[in-house]
Design a protein around this nucleic acid. Structure first.
Length: 292
DNA sequence: GTGCCCTTTGTA
DNA sequence: TACAAAGGGCAC
């Protein structure tokens, strides 16, 4: 039944939803080719916030859709190159993004649902992910948002006037498995609070149970003002586990990376622009997040 | 021709 | 069961 979502969604897709795409995505095939000039670093084993070793493989993850010949990355590269058996379906590798990666991605997504090629590349290099992964992630996030809105927003638009009940309900259905907070305290420490494994007793969409962490960057007023706020307001700090903490060096690796990007981190600092001064104050005060 | 949307696949 | 990635169709 929900097999077909309207092409124009409530998710307020930017008119330029077609992704600026200054450059054709044809790079994909090359993704694993030597001409990876675009891919900052196919991902070497340099940094690795990556939780799973698989990630390294993905970096070269070929885009079968465009290049059937592009096959197994790294591991198989041993010359074995499973030589794309015409019909050999490439094995899927499920990437498990790290908290850090998710935080940055989410932060970015909150601000921008569509990234240009360059922006994605930036992110990919910062996070040590492939462009394709970034792209896919954003794609998935957009879809998640759409579905979330489609299935849940109506309810909230309804309760707009009933903030309290909306809060309760939202908390009941929001499961931010991937959510996390970047906590920059007064002392300059940056920590990431993750809220893993929150369950959602009452989620409406089957496939959505827990993979939804929907950002507030939608033009949707109701969402901006309520849902997002509520998403966090209800979570006591006890439910937030510090996943990463950069205690001594204010300029942690992550922070440094973000600064290099000049965007992601900036996004954090600019968070208030999404809410009103008051809203952001309320929102963050609940978590003792002091943005300096 | 290229990229997005949506569905399906398949691993963790 | 969650969710990243592949597959297919469609719009521009």
């Amino acid at each position: 039944m929900d097999s077909a979502y309207p092409r124009s969604l409530p998710c307020s897709e930017p008119s330029d939803s077609r992704e600026p795409a200054p450059v054709p995505e044809t790079y994909e095939p090359e993704e694993n080719s030597a001409s990876d000039s675009r891919e900052p670093s196919p991902v070497p084993e340099t940094v690795s916030p990556l939780p799973s070793s698989m990630d390294l493989l993905i970096q070269n993850s070929p885009d079968s859709s465009t290049s059937p010949s592009a096959t197994l990355p790294a591991s198989a590269e041993n010359g074995a190159r499973k030589e794309e058996q015409p019909q050999a379906k490439k094995q899927k590798i499920r990437t498990v993004f790290s908290q850090t990666q998710l935080c940055v991605l989410n932060e970015r997504f909150q601000r921008q649902k569509y990234l240009s090629l360059q922006q994605m590349q930036e992110l990919s290099s910062i996070l040590n992910l492939s462009y394709k992964q970034i792209k896919t992630w954003f794609q998935n996030q957009r879809m998640k948002c759409k579905r979330w809105q489609k299935y849940n927003w109506p309810k909230y638009s309804h309760r707009m006037s009933q903030m309290n009940s909306a809060t309760t309900e939202y908390l009941g259905l929001s499961s931010c498995h991937q959510g996390c907070l970047l906590n920059t305290n007064a002392s300059g420490n940056l920590s990431i609070w993750s809220n893993h494994s929150w369950t959602s007793p009452s989620w409406n969409y089957p496939a959505w149970n827990s993979q939804t962490w929907c950002p507030q960057s939608w033009n949707n007023q109701a969402w901006n003002n309520q849902a997002w706020n509520n998403q966090f307001c209800g979570y006591g700090e006890e439910s937030l586990q510090p996943q990463i903490q950069f205690q001594q060096n204010p300029v942690s690796d992550l922070e440094a990376s973000l600064e290099m990007a000049g965007e992601a981190y900036d996004a954090i600092l600019q968070a208030p622009i999404y809410y009103g001064a008051q809203q952001s104050a309320d929102l963050f005060s609940d978590f003792s997040v002091n943005i300096v």
